[in-house]
Nucleic acid binder design. Structure first.
Lengths: 339, 339
DNA sequence: CTGAAAGCGCTTACAG
DNA sequence: CTGAAAGCGCTTACAG
């Protein structure tokens, strides 16, 4: 019941282990490739391998070759729907690359991020996909300077020469503002996070510049909510904004959108009669809300797919100068909440 | 810039690699343990290791010892909130065991499950946590007969001698029925899946027996929805049930609950005025629904924690006769939807 | 208490 | 076209 090794096959076939190894590795190449190995021998070896149910020992292969066929993905929180969806896409696509994936969640904590990356490197990964968090910039820069292939996702990190896949965050909030301004609303306020994450910063910039474009500079108001007690914080903001006669809210993230809708619902403020909103990201929660939600949609699956493809490109050589930035475009889904 | 190995340390310290290896592995034991190695030497070796930033090569260690410090977790779909939450718990807890986790999603497809398990075994895992799916019973039985530690989660698989962590599914639906019957409702119908998953079957049994307990056998009605086009299927069921004068619905899963609420909302059937419902699992979507939902709550984090603990117990020896079944208890969260 | 040596299973030059 | 051999970095008996 011991696992069969390359040596067992060699004995059985009466050839050297080297030849078996050669045949086995060529096997995984293109099917139409003509082996340089004698075809009869090769066929015999393959046959024996199948009969003995040969499974290459990955640890030995890794030790020898240095390749692990494993990649590490460091994201904020895998139980968050956005990242869970991305994780799923990466998992599926990695399968095609004959590659397994290990995930880690940072909870927006730079220390955890650093630690996770170290654990993954110790474990042995061929490359890393990382969602930066506040405070991790320096570490990520040093990481990029090492020779481990790296792809950044969802959030920028300045002065890092590597590939990345990002959302056009400015465009996302421009779409949100336009959706409301085009319906004649001008008192549009933004609810964002306190955190200085690049994507949040860019979304704020998108909001601001679009407001200016509509000549609404004087109405610009960005509310930066601390990461804890979101509901309570938003409630305060909403109450005072309503008192000032706000006409609409745009939200910087999905979590903020849900919390905002919950607040409005609890306050008995109907949408879109009393106030208009444009959300961020889709959510199954929207379906149970009374009115259909207008929201900015991200091509979630593209995050995973493109990031993995870029990483694989790095891993399989590819000159370091060919680093690419993939900019994903947001899309507006129009519902009644912005009418 | 090459990675430092045990040999570099040995050279630097003027001792054998064996001694270094011995010191390094003892180091990871209890801190108060007195080394049998000369303390000065040991200290010097440790010091050099730190100075040279020594990181043990996991592949070499695995090749030699056969241990990978990796476990595989096979679940339905990691982008599903329930499983994503579990994944997160397992990830966090595995860290404490100095162990990494690889996840795989079956999409309720026995072929995928089988394939994933094989990939994980080839990759090398010390153990497996598996959520069975319909049709995977035979394969899982054969898996349990191999010597790879295995823990079943969320769903049963008969005749498998291994540990498992399950929800008391019967009790879950009993709670749901009681919540409604105690409020005087008797025409309570259940919406479940077509799939013959053990947890669904047990939930149906729980519904049925509780109805009988209340003397409502004649009102028992279980609607089994196919896995595709859930919304459309539920809509048909709901419309005809309403025509028959149904008073309440109980749902077998979270997805069904959300879809059901959506259908009711679209039909303009208000809850609890026109019909009462008890849902399954919490969801952020409930927060945006007009009335608070009564639902059966599962201790989600316990699934991950207990399953991992059981698996680790298997892995670190533990006699095969001590297989345990952990039965998690559901809890009823009362809202207005059942009043 | 410490060292020399074998070996885990594979791949990769290097001969022939 | 095929084989003998070295070596990836570690751990584990076995000597001394």
């Amino acid at each position: 019941m011991k696992k069969t090794t390359i040596r067992d096959i060699a004995n059985e076939a009466g050839v050297s282990v080297a030849l078996v190894s050669f045949v086995m590795s060529n096997q995984s190449r293109s099917a139409d490739k003509v082996y340089k190995v004698n075809e009869t021998t090769s066929r015999r070896i393959l046959e024996i391998a199948r009969r003995l149910d040969y499974r290459p020992n990955k640890a030995a292969r890794t030790l020898r070759s240095g390749k692990t066929n494993t990649i590490g993905v460091v994201l904020s929180d895998i139980s968050n729907k956005f990242f869970a969806d991305i994780a799923r896409c990466i998992e599926d696509r990695a399968y095609g690359y004959d590659c397994t994936v290990i995930f880690g969640s940072t909870d927006e904590n730079a220390g955890k991020l650093e630690n996770l990356v170290k654990v993954f490197m110790d474990k042995g990964v061929d490359g890393l996909i990382v969602v930066p968090c506040v405070g991790s910039e320096r570490f990520i820069r040093s990481l990029a300077d090492s020779d481990l292939p790296l792809v950044l996702m969802d959030r920028e990190c300045s002065d890092v020469n590597t590939s990345r896949v990002m959302l056009n965050n400015g465009a996302a909030l421009s779409l949100a503002v336009s959706a409301l301004a085009d319906n004649g609303y001008s008192k549009i306020e933004m609810i964002a996070y306190d955190m200085r994450l690049s994507n949040i910063v860019e979304r704020e910039a998108g909001y601001r510049s679009k407001m200016e474009e509509y000549g609404l500079s004087d109405n610009v108001a960005i509310h930066r909510i601390p990461y804890k007690d979101i509901y309570g914080q938003i409630r305060e903001v909403v109450v005072s904004a309503l008192a000032r006669g706000v006409e609409a809210f745009v939200f910087a993230t999905n979590t903020l959108t849900i919390a905002g809708l919950k607040v409005l619902s609890d306050l008995g403020v109907t949408v879109p009669e009393k106030v208009r909103i444009v959300g961020f990201d889709d959510s199954e929660a929207f379906e149970l809300y009374g009115t259909s939600i207008t929201y900015v949609s991200q091509p979630v699956e593209q995050f995973g797919i493109r990031a993995l493809d870029l990483l694989m490109e790095h891993i399989s050589g590819g000159d370091p100068l060919s680093r690419k930035t993939v900019m994903l475009q947001p899309r507006l889904v129009v519902g009644n909440s912005s009418q």
